[in-house]
Structure formats: C-alpha cells, structure tokens
C-alpha cells in the first residue's frame, strides 16, 4: 500500500447522534488503515468529559458552565427529538435492538484503534474545562494541529 492516508474530523457538536456519526466514520476510517484524528472543539469537548465528580479549581462562571453541560458521551442530548430526556432513552433502546454500538463504546474502540482524540485548548478555556475532567490519554492542540493534519487529509469533516 502507498503512504498512509489521513482522515480528520472536527467534532464541534455535542449532540449524541452527531457524535455517533463522527465516531462511526472515524472507526471505519481506522479500519481502512487511515491515520485518524478527531478534533474536539466547543460542545464536542463534552464527549471527552469524565462522568465523575471532580473539583478542579474554577471561577464562578466556569462552575456554572460545568454544571450546565453534559458529562461524557452517554449523557449527551439528541439533536432532534430530545423530548426532555425521553428521546435519548428511546434511541438507546432501539440501538440495543439493532446491535448498534453506544457512543461510549465507540469512543473506547476509537482508542483501541489508535485514533487520536484531540481537545482544543482554546475552547476548553472558554468553557472552563480542565484537563483532569477529560479522558486520560488524549492530546491537546489548536488550529495549527488541525491544519497540520488536515492539509494532507484524504477526508476532512466538520460535524
């Protein structure tokens, strides 16, 4: 095979369904032997949050943001049909029936397939998210990290 191709996905959305699409594409691309990177920015950072009670030192505003945003993959809302929390319950039920992998498993599989999960540090600062609140073994970067990978990417997506 020729040089390894690259797939780069910017995950801006913090919606469960959109994040699922991003992670399915990422895992598929990894099966194609692409070097895959998912750049998490803004609401997409919430996919990487640990579902734990952590008390990093924060300003009042950062604490408020932390409380209002979902903690981790399985707590994200849907982009459509949220129905005050009923939507995600229903869709997860249907997913189980069809053997579709839940988002947290897709994240685990992404790590197993050596997909690079990268958190945008600028938006982490805006939303008051600290490194200890995000999953271990992820990378941190900014726009240059994306362009560096993206400029010779076979597939570049913004979700």
């Amino acid at each position: 095979m020729s040089e390894q191709k690259k797939t780069n996905i910017i995950l801006f959305s913090g919606d469960y369904d959109k994040a699922m699409a991003a992670y399915i594409i990422a895992n598929g691309a990894a099966a194609y032997d692409h070097k895959v990177t998912i750049f998490h920015t803004f609401w997409g950072l919430n996919v990487l949050r640990k579902n734990e009670k952590l008390r990093p030192s924060k300003t009042f505003m950062e604490k408020m943001f932390g409380k209002m945003m979902p903690k981790g993959a399985e707590n994200l809302p849907l982009s459509k049909m949220q129905f005050a929390g009923m939507g995600p319950k229903m869709i997860k039920n249907v997913m189980r029936k069809h053997n579709a992998m839940p988002l947290d498993d897709l994240v685990t599989m992404a790590k197993e397939q050596e997909i690079t999960l990268l958190a945008c540090t600028m938006t982490m600062d805006l939303l008051g998210l600290k490194q200890e609140e995000l999953l271990d073994d992820i990378e941190y970067g900014g726009v240059a990290a994306y362009i560096g990978e993206g400029e010779d990417g076979a597939i570049n997506l913004f979700i």
């Binding site: 399915i24 594409i25 895992n27 598929g28 990894a30 099966a31 194609y32 032997d33 069809h98 053997n99 579709a100 992998m101 599989m109 397939q113």
Partner: peptide
Amino acid sequence: KGLACPMPIVRTK
C-alpha cells in the same frame, strides 16, 4: 452476524 456498522469492517480488519 448481528453486528451493525461499523463493526463488521472493524472486525474484518
């Protein structure tokens, strides 16, 4: 069998 996208391809790889 029974696996949904993207599992068949990931397992095949």
